[in-house]
Design a protein around this nucleic acid. Sequence first.
DNA 1: ATGTTGATCTTCT
DNA 2: GAAGATCAACATC
Length: 217
Amino acid sequence: MNSPDRVGLLGLPSLELAPHLLGAHVSTFIGGRLVVVRLTEVEAYDGHQDPGSHAYRGKTARNAGLFGPPGTAYVYFTYGMHFCANVVCGQEGTASAVLMRAGEVVSGRDTVLARRGNPKGPEAQLLSGPARLAQGLGLTLEHNLARFRDGTAVPPGPDLALGNLAIAPAGYLAGPRTGVAGDGGGEEYPYRFWLPGEPSVSPYRKAAPRKVRGGRD
DNA sequence: ATGTTGATCTTCT
DNA sequence: GAAGATCAACATC
């Protein structure tokens, strides 16, 4: 019945799961296209106690997926145009989750290129950044609350899968999260994890305040 | 190579 | 009403 092995590593809280996601394979079968990506950079979000988490202020309609069972996909819409995707983990209700930030294409490169709009930049940048990665995988709000299946083979099962989770990376680095403003940013929350030497890992930037709009004179 | 700005809209205060 | 787990284009060096 409720054997813990069935949930497996996804039952770990985000700070423990995050390193396992490095080097793991994410597979999507969306729109009849299979894409497999090897993750190189992730960020952990630690639920209600984490000022950087969407769950910090409690459960809302938007972040409800964070409070779901491990293996839930939490996809959100931001900046009026981008989607970002998390793997919900830990015990149900704790809102522990890992944001997928960057990766490299393992399979389905043509599909990824088309979805990304055939960008002109270097190949390493193709899936460098959470919105780029989600776009390449074909993830949108339609996939919010979907479930990640264990394993690489996707069709004809669920749309999303996670493989190679059990393989711990030989070495990885950790540091402050990118783009997180306020108390959740900075050295006190070294919740960003990446594989050293991977060209797809996005450079660190502080969360810069935007220019004030609608300035009157 | 690094810094600044516009795009675009949902969500919460 | 303002900010946001961002990106791409443009300016300047």
